[in-house]
């Protein structure tokens, strides 16, 4: 296919993706077991490129852990630890504190090491929310990255509080009397921002340069940084594997998932679509939304418009 895979007129290639701007080093290496077309591992890969080799990763149970660490093998080229599902932030806190005291006491080399705690939307917005809030409040110099594929994918596509309204999952199935997920997606970036930490950003697996830039800012932040990355999961969203990038872009172009950052409390929208696309463009073709009727879609559109207005107002005030 020579024409753009995108359903709208968008220049492909260099403007979207500039390999020369992204380090060539790999820290999560090939051979891992992610599904074909997994954009969650893609997002993670780009995040790590930004952070570089002097990074320690504390990862929650979930897809990214399971695909990368079947004993006795590993896909990790940086130090990596997995402890449990709900405690990546707490483990990361410990690593940060441990490295800090050992460096102060001269027991490890005197160099900066970045601590990245990473979990899925379940490990972040649901079971790990308390540990995350504690870590952000305590002010550890640590980056927390949520790789949000909008459900518990590792255990078979169950809903989380970050699953979008209307999505059919295995525990929020669409049915005769159910539209699927009946609650609105929890806004984790706002929750993180409410902790008044130096850096909060949203990102998306389809925007690698943006991920790299935001992770670099997160690394430079003087305290906790939170990056919430919408990460397209073809398996759970029920889309063709080669469409992962396209759907991430549509999430952003429709303002379903806006890209922005909150630096020292100031909001900045980092990518403003020239023309906001209707939500139908995004929903169409995703198996998880297949059952939705026009009325429900209109309701979703109204909500997205409202949220987008609110975000713009915040950015305007900043």
């Amino acid at each position: 296919m020579s024409q753009s895979p995108l359903p709208f007129n968008y220049p492909l290639s260099t403007e979207l993706y500039a390999p020369r701007l992204i380090p060539k080093d790999e820290f999560i290496v090939s051979g891992h077991r992610a599904c074909q077309g997994c954009a969650e591992v893609l997002a993670l890969r780009h995040a790590l490129k930004a952070l570089g080799p002097d990074t320690v990763v504390a990862m929650a149970t979930g897809c990214m852990e399971i695909i990368s660490s079947p004993l006795p093998t590993t896909a990790w080229a940086v130090p990596w630890i997995h402890v449990a599902f709900e405690n990546a932030a707490a483990v990361g806190s410990g690593i940060e504190a441990g490295l800090k005291i050992l460096r102060r006491k001269g027991r490890i080399p005197d160099k900066d090491v970045t601590v990245l705690a990473c979990a899925g939307d379940g490990g972040t917005a649901d079971i790990g929310l308390q540990a995350l809030s504690g870590a952000l409040e305590r002010g550890h110099k640590m980056i927390y990255m949520c790789v949000d594929n909008e459900a518990y994918m590792n255990t078979g596509i169950q809903r989380s509080s970050a699953t979008p309204f209307g999505a059919s999952t295995t525990t929020s199935p669409a049915g005769k009397v159910s539209i699927g997920q009946a609650t609105w997606k929890k806004n984790m970036a706002e929750i993180a921002a409410a902790h008044n930490i130096p850096y909060v950003a949203t990102a998306c697996s389809s925007y690698p340069l943006d991920i790299v830039e935001k992770m670099r800012k997160a690394k430079a932040a003087d305290g906790p940084a939170y990056v919430h990355c919408l990460s397209v999961c073809p398996t759970g969203w029920r889309i063709p594997t080669e469409q992962a990038i396209r759907y991430g872009r549509l999430a952003v172009e429709t303002c379903v998932f806006p890209l922005y950052e909150v630096v020292g409390g100031r909001y900045r929208i980092t990518y403003k679509p020239e023309k906001k696309r209707p939500i139908g463009d995004y929903l169409k073709g995703q198996g998880r939304f297949r059952h939705l009727d026009e009325a429900t879609i209109a309701k979703m559109q109204a909500r997205i418009d409202e949220e987008w207005e609110k975000l713009q107002a915040k950015a305007d005030r900043s």
């Binding site: 402890v83 483990v91 410990g94 504190a97 441990g98 050992l102 870590a135």
Partner: peptide, 17 residues
């Protein structure tokens, strides 16, 4: 920490460091 669950989790972090 904000809980015992996090206490022991953080202890694993410090110890692993």
């Amino acid at each position: 920490v904000e809980s015992e669950h996090s206490a022991l989790s953080a202890c694993i972090g410090t110890q692993a460091a």
